[in-house]
Simulated scan of single mutants.
Amino acid sequence: MAFRKWRYRQFIKQLWGDPKRFDYSDQAIAEIGHKDFETLELYTATRGGKEAVATYRKMESLKQKARSGTTACA
C-alpha cells in the first residue's frame, strides 16, 4: 500500500512539473465548431444526435433573428 501511495505521488509530481502540461489538446475537450456536427459520429450516427443538431441549429437561427431585430410570424 505504501508503494502505491509513493508511486502515485511521484506521478502527480511529474504531471504537475511538466512545463508542457497545458499544451495538450484533444477533440473531446476542444470547442465545438459548426463542421463538427457533420463529421463527428456522436452527432451523425443516431436519431437522437441528429435531432439534437436540428434543435441546436433552430435555436441558433432564432437567436440570430432576435439579434438582428427581425421577427418571424408563424
Rank of each mutant, 00 (worst) to 15 (best):
22 F>W: 15
22 F>I: 09
23 D>F: 12
24 Y>L: 12
24 Y>P: 01
24 Y>A: 07
25 S>C: 05
25 S>W: 02
26 D>K: 14
27 Q>W: 10
27 Q>I: 11
28 A>C: 11
28 A>T: 11
30 A>H: 05
31 E>N: 12
31 E>F: 04
31 E>I: 01
32 I>R: 10
32 I>E: 10
34 H>V: 00
36 D>C: 07
36 D>R: 05
36 D>Q: 02
37 F>L: 11
38 E>T: 01
38 E>V: 03
38 E>G: 02
40 L>T: 03
40 L>H: 03
40 L>G: 00
40 L>S: 06
41 E>S: 09
41 E>A: 08
41 E>N: 07
41 E>P: 08
41 E>W: 01
42 L>I: 14
42 L>N: 05
43 Y>I: 07
43 Y>S: 06
44 T>E: 01
45 A>C: 04
46 T>Y: 02
46 T>H: 02
46 T>G: 06
47 R>T: 10
48 G>S: 06
49 G>N: 00
50 K>Q: 10
50 K>Y: 00
50 K>G: 01
51 E>M: 09
52 A>D: 10
52 A>M: 12
52 A>W: 08
53 V>M: 09
53 V>Y: 03
54 A>L: 11
55 T>S: 15
55 T>G: 07
56 Y>I: 12
56 Y>D: 08
57 R>L: 08
57 R>N: 08
58 K>C: 10
58 K>D: 13
59 M>D: 15
59 M>W: 07
59 M>Y: 13
59 M>C: 07
60 E>C: 14
60 E>D: 05
61 S>R: 11
61 S>D: 15
62 L>F: 08
62 L>M: 08
63 K>M: 10
66 A>H: 11
67 R>T: 07
68 S>C: 02
68 S>T: 12
68 S>V: 10
68 S>E: 13
69 G>V: 06
70 T>Q: 15
70 T>L: 14
71 T>Y: 06
72 A>S: 15
72 A>R: 15
72 A>T: 14
